[in-house]
Design a protein around this nucleic acid. Structure first.
Length: 270
DNA sequence: ACACGTGTTATGCG
DNA sequence: TCGCATAACACGTG
């Protein structure tokens, strides 16, 4: 499922395959994925325009449109994928990221589409319909992007409150782009317990978390996904910490299943 | 059949 | 009002 590396890949798919092509039709009939827009509203706003630039911040994408048109917001959710197809339906580009069991060319779950003048199309393929398409999304609410966050911004994101650090890392308003697997990897790498309240983090822990964030983001983007992260081996069956062989434990923080090494990531005061 | 899920958001509580 | 926790969302997969 998409995390930041997959979203960056999807953005590049849009950048190389969907810009500067005149839009002649839009399939926006799925009012769940396209909420809050009624059917036809996105079409009316985009027909005869072009996408001009594709942006990403965290796991959110958006495109600028020609002639001072609206911003088109795109979010993949947990199951979405961007696919570019030829006029005859042949898939031209789906990126080289996660397929989620989908066979290339399977467009049964296309929930949204831009149709270009030559008949080609950009589709959001999304079986679970957890993705989102909307006009003028509230991008100003996003925190600093995890790929370019500064030390000062990172410290500020963890500075206040009592939330478990794992929940704060997942908060897209604090830092944009950290998903469940990346958060577990960052905490494991930094040897910080996921349940530690952010106001009980020491400066050394915050520094370790920043370094771990940069490492995890950099390597997973380079590798095109989170699947090369060592922390995946914290997960069952019979999972053991890749560093010390301790059987791992799991719980729930920030509403998501969380795995950690009980030897290295201890609760309580350091 | 049933539980689970790599994401977000509405709702409710103190 | 704020910060945080939880349920809900939708549906394929194991």
């Amino acid at each position: 499922m998409p995390e930041l590396p997959e979203v960056e890949n999807a953005r590049s798919v849009i950048g190389r395959g969907a810009l500067r092509r005149r839009i002649v039709d839009v399939d926006d009939h799925d009012t769940w994925v396209c909420r809050p827009h009624p059917p036809g509203q996105i079409r009316d706003a985009l027909v005869n325009r072009e996408l001009t630039v594709a942006h990403r911040q965290g796991k959110s994408m958006w495109c600028e449109t020609s002639e001072d048109g609206p911003i088109l917001g795109i979010h993949l959710g947990m199951s979405g994928k961007i696919v570019i197809a030829d006029p005859d339906g042949t898939e031209v580009d789906g990126g080289d990221y996660w397929e989620g069991g989908r066979a290339p060319g399977d467009h049964r779950f296309a929930r949204f589409a831009l149709v270009f003048a030559d008949g080609g199309r950009l589709m959001l393929v999304d079986p679970r319909r957890l993705g989102r398409i909307r006009l003028d999304p509230p991008i100003e609410l996003l925190g600093p992007d995890a790929t370019s966050i500064t030390a000062a911004q990172f410290r500020a994101a963890l500075a206040h409150g009592t939330a478990p650090v794992k929940a704060r890392l997942l908060d897209q308003h604090a830092v944009a782009g950290i998903g469940n697997l990346l958060a577990d990897d960052i905490l494991w790498r930094a040897r910080v317990h996921p349940g530690r309240p952010v106001d009980e983090l020491t400066p050394a822990m915050v520094d370790a978390l920043l370094r771990a964030t940069r490492y995890a983001i950099r390597t997973s983007v380079r590798d095109g996904g989170v699947h090369t992260l060592g922390s995946l081996r914290l997960r069952p069956p019979d999972a053991r910490c890749p560093r010390d062989g301790t059987p791992t434990v799991h719980g729930t923080y920030g509403g998501r299943t969380t795995w950690w090494c009980p030897l290295e990531q201890k609760e309580g005061h350091p």
